[in-house]
Design a protein around this nucleic acid. Structure first.
Length: 139
DNA sequence: GCCAACGTTGGC
DNA sequence: GCCAACGTTGGC
């Protein structure tokens, strides 16, 4: 069981859009970066992921669950690109901002803080717990 | 809108 | 295989 963080620009696809897809979710398509793709290939059903709004908001706004493992990206014929399937689970009671993550010394090693450009990234279990707490969730 | 930090492409 | 040029992401 792993933890992840996925980024989306909320004016293109936000967490409400993700929740609106329902319990079966949808593929997390459009990823054209090897590192991000490799992370998606590691996703297992039942893994959890934070949903992060990049550019606008710059905050973790919800929690998702992996419901399907890696398969070819339906939005391209290029065989290099795969994606996993994801559904929305619940919004964060309190969005956790990038600023909060940068400020908290317990999160100083987070990929979100140190590698701004990676759009699908792993989250360490202790980081997951800290952010859930900050976001008003008991986890 | 700018630009830093990366990633990718393609010539050699 | 190196590296310059270019493209993209995403914070500010």
């Amino acid at each position: 069981m792993r933890y992840w963080l996925v980024k989306s620009e909320p004016d293109v696809f936000n967490f409400a859009d993700q929740m609106a897809l329902g319990p079966h979710g949808a593929e997390w398509h459009g990823i054209r970066n090897y590192q991000a793709r490799n992370n998606m290939r590691l996703m297992a059903v039942g893994d959890l992921a934070f949903f992060y709004h990049s550019n606008i908001g710059k905050e973790i706004v919800g929690i998702c669950e992996v419901v399907g493992t890696s398969h070819p990206d339906s939005t391209t014929d290029d065989p290099r690109w795969d994606c996993a399937d994801i559904r929305g689970i619940r919004p964060m009671p309190v969005p956790v901002t990038l600023q909060m993550c940068k400020t908290d010394p317990r999160l100083s090693g987070m990929v979100l803080v140190n590698n701004t450009r990676l759009s699908v990234q792993p989250v360490a279990p202790d980081e997951w717990a800290v952010i859930c707490q900050m976001g008003g969730l008991r986890e």
